[in-house]
Design a protein around this nucleic acid. Structure first.
Length: 410
RNA sequence: GCCAGGGUGGGGUAGUCGGUCAUCCUAAGGGACUGUGGAUCCCUCGACCCGGGUUCGAAUCUCGGCCCUGGCCCCA
């Protein structure tokens, strides 16, 4: 049998309904905060992503050449594309720009739990607002979007400035190596990296910084820095709105373009791949020929959220199976149409089955059967059978629709 | 790229130190039935992941590949 490509998935109707429900909740959260949906192409020029992340990511993307010899790639993420779009056509829009997206992305990686080669991200980008409140808004929206999905998670919020301050007089390569260890919480690797570079004096403050439980401790360790007021204001805003987060100044993600505030979210019930949220402030537009505009955004790993929330029960809408004898078929189509016009899902037999078999099928797939035969056609009525209780009654079409509608979710 | 465990009808399974046209459950389709059948009975459909090797004979042993599950690495 022909298999689907490695790392891809099929979604049956039940799962698709769950995905759409969660997706809608995230979109609604964004809408309430004023973030409007945008859409960018599924594939972009390869250059867009190598400019942002370097040549090294080529091996982790679906890269191809089109018939015109252009180097293209399926998008591995959306932020770069949104900023490209901003540079192309968003520059003249009034600031700040609040945009959101829900899009599938592609990465050539080894699949495992919560990691697929085609996966979906929900995210927002706030462009042109460079304030503590802008940072806080994006964090609060991320929190709200995740809350609305029902996932149980831990939110970590940090800022790159304190760590960069500690590492200020190091060569860029050394900075990078040390921050990579910090980001992974790799204590042994960190110690080795510091010793190897004669920087053991940094071991204590770096460890202390990672363990800070509040913002005040951070500045006790590193002293005053220019970003202090902005950091304190951002955290104070989060505290003022009772956001449940923990300060984490050990976050060192996105060395290449994050500029200040950074945050991450982790699902509590997932395994190795438990990060479901990542975001922060960044500057990217200048790479694509635009102004050096301050931006802030996040992306939620939608598929991991779905793994985390599991196969929850769906609200069930009543389904009507329209059952008829051959001579009542035209009437059955009228009746089905009337139910549909009332917003009710109604299905007719397409298999030329006898009434008994139609009812047997309806009993498996529907909540109500509407039975139509010679008698009902002549009387202008329908017989409505409740397939759960087995009770049935002959009545007018209007009454039957009202009865089914009254059940709503059943 | 690395490690571990796995691939038998659509789903779930039995069989595997080699040996009849591969077991059972379930789902699906058809028939009987022709105004209540989520029933009953009968029938049908449908599988050993792919390829090479060993052998008289391979689902079973062996090698390679593909895919799945989880972990490592990576994670924009």
């Amino acid at each position: 049998m022909l298999q689907k490509p490695r790392g891809t998935r099929d979604f049956l109707p039940d799962e698709m309904e769950r995905r759409r429900l969660i997706e809608r909740r995230m979109r609604e959260a964004a809408r309430r905060w004023g973030y409007r949906e945008v859409c960018t192409p599924d594939f972009e020029n390869l250059e867009l992503f190598t400019m942002k992340s370097g040549e090294g990511i080529i091996q982790e993307m679906y890269v191809f050449e089109d018939k015109g010899g252009r180097q293209l790639t399926l998008r591995p993420e959306v932020t770069a594309a949104v900023l490209r779009m901003y540079v192309n056509e968003g520059k003249v829009l009034p600031k700040p720009i609040r945009w959101c997206y829900f899009a599938d992305c592609f990465r050539y990686e080894r699949p495992q739990k919560g990691r697929y080669r085609q996966f979906w991200q929900f995210g927002v980008e706030l462009i042109g607002a460079d304030t503590a409140l802008a940072d806080a808004e994006v964090i609060m929206l991320a929190d709200e979007a995740l809350q609305s999905s029902g996932v149980t998670f831990d939110l970590h919020v940090g800022h790159l400035a304190p760590m960069k301050h500690l590492l200020a007089d190091l060569a860029p390569g050394d900075q990078r190596a040390i921050m990579a260890c910090l980001d992974k919480h790799d204590q042994e690797g960190l110690r080795a990296a510091l010793v190897g570079r004669g920087l053991t004096r940094l071991a204590e403050p770096l460890a202390a910084l990672s363990e800070c439980r509040n913002v005040a401790e951070v500045f006790e360790i590193i002293g005053d820095i220019p970003e202090r007021a902005r950091i304190e204001e951002t955290f104070a805003l989060l505290d003022s709105q009772n956001i449940n987060y923990q300060p984490d100044f050990g976050i060192a993600r996105g060395l290449d373009y994050y500029t200040g505030m950074v945050f991450e979210g982790f699902a509590r019930n997932l395994g190795a791949e438990n990060q479901i949220l990542g975001g922060g402030t960044y500057r990217l537009a200048h790479l694509f020929g635009g102004d050096d505009v301050a931006s802030c955004g996040f992306a939620i790993g939608f598929d991991r959220v779905m793994v985390s929330v599991g196969d929850f029960a769906l609200a069930h809408e009543p389904v009507v199976g329209v059952v008829c004898t051959p001579e009542a078929r035209a009437r059955a189509l009228e009746v089905a149409r009337a139910f549909r016009e009332a917003g009710v899902r109604a299905e007719v037999d397409l298999m030329q089955r006898g009434m008994g078999a139609q009812l047997a099928h309806a009993a498996k797939t529907a909540d109500f059967a509407v039975v139509l035969g010679k008698r009902e056609v002549e009387a202008g009525t329908v017989t409505l059978k409740d397939l759960h209780s087995g009770e049935q009654q002959e009545r007018s079409l209007e009454d039957a629709i009202a009865e089914v509608t009254r059940h709503g979710a059943c």
